[in-house]
């Protein structure tokens, strides 16, 4: 009996040792020498593999950073790691630092339960993409938020959550990395990556409805009615197709308060958040 145990331990142990040696030798012989630069840059990256940089993953991005020239480097940006990581990579490659303004995603819809009450009931699977195919949504607005939360499922950083009271998602601008996953997922295209000032201020038109004012207002009190009042505050604000749009060049710090007060429906949103100090 004891012999059997001993024998099996010896045989299996022997096989293990021999295989280990073979594997070690083979791995040394066929090792692919990876550029040290890639390994070093890869170590700096957040390893979220979100695809926000436009590459297939963090390793792919590291590869791109390692072999790009200084001019091309300016076009690369890791939205998750942010300025800090990009500066470190720049230092590693010996390039000058590239300043990138902070950004965050915003939801261009203010169709809350209060502003846009439900008109019909939807009892299908909870997927915005399915709902968008079936009808214009429970609120009746053909461009509004469907409130089923596909964006929340796709966010890898926990920046999105559903606000039970308003029915529409809220974005934590401190957690948002501008990776753009929500922009790609939303069937209504309601998310937009917009610049954020140093104080965390954001300014945008929270509506994408291009219907005439009266029709849009029937479904949602907070719809943009293209009244042109915002264009009088700042001439750069454009009203096209019954919809106002505030370009990036309009300073949120300077005009945010005035634009928000000028909008009679509350479609222009100006938020100021406490700065994240960590």
């Amino acid at each position: 009996m004891d012999d059997t145990v001993l024998l099996s331990v010896l045989v299996l142990g022997g096989i293990a040792i021999v295989s280990a040696i073979v594997l070690y030798l083979v791995s040394r012989k066929f090792a692919i020498a990876e550029d040290v630069k890639i390994v070093e840059i890869d170590a700096l990256l957040p390893q979220a593999n979100c695809g926000g940089c436009g590459k297939a993953g963090c390793h792919d991005f590291a590869q791109a950073c390692a072999f790009v020239d200084e001019k091309g480097f300016a076009g690369l940006y890791c939205p998750v790691g942010g300025q800090q990581v990009m500066d470190q990579i720049a230092a590693l490659r010996g390039f000058a630092k590239v300043e990138k303004k902070p950004t965050a995603a915003v939801l261009r819809c203010n169709g809350t339960c209060q502003n846009a009450p439900l008109k019909v009931s939807y009892d299908h699977i909870t997927s915005c993409r399915i709902a968008a195919r079936i009808s214009s949504g429970q609120t009746g607005c053909p461009t509004g938020c469907l409130r089923l939360g596909d964006c929340i499922k796709v966010c890898k950083f926990g920046a999105l959550s559903m606000n039970k009271e308003t029915g529409i998602p809220i974005i934590d601008h401190n957690k948002c990395t501008s990776c753009g996953a929500c922009v790609r997922m939303c069937p209504r295209g309601l998310f937009e990556i917009r610049p954020k000032t140093e104080n965390g201020e954001m300014l945008y038109v929270a509506c994408r409805n291009t219907q005439k004012g009266a029709i849009a207002r029937k479904n949602c009190k907070a719809a943009c009615i293209a009244c042109q009042k915002c264009t009088k505050v700042n001439a750069e604000v454009k009203v096209e197709n019954n919809l106002s749009y505030i370009p990036d060049t309009v300073s949120a710090e300077e005009f945010g308060q005035a634009l928000r007060e000028a909008c009679p429906t509350g479609a222009i949103i100006y938020t100021k958040e406490e700065k994240n100090n960590d």
């Binding site: 019909v120 079936i134 009808s135 214009s136 949504g137 053909p142 219907q211 029709i215």
Partner: peptide, 10 residues
């Protein structure tokens, strides 16, 4: 003009 159809889209 554009009117709401059977699916709510105009």
């Amino acid at each position: 003009e554009a009117i709401e159809g059977e699916f709510g889209y105009v």
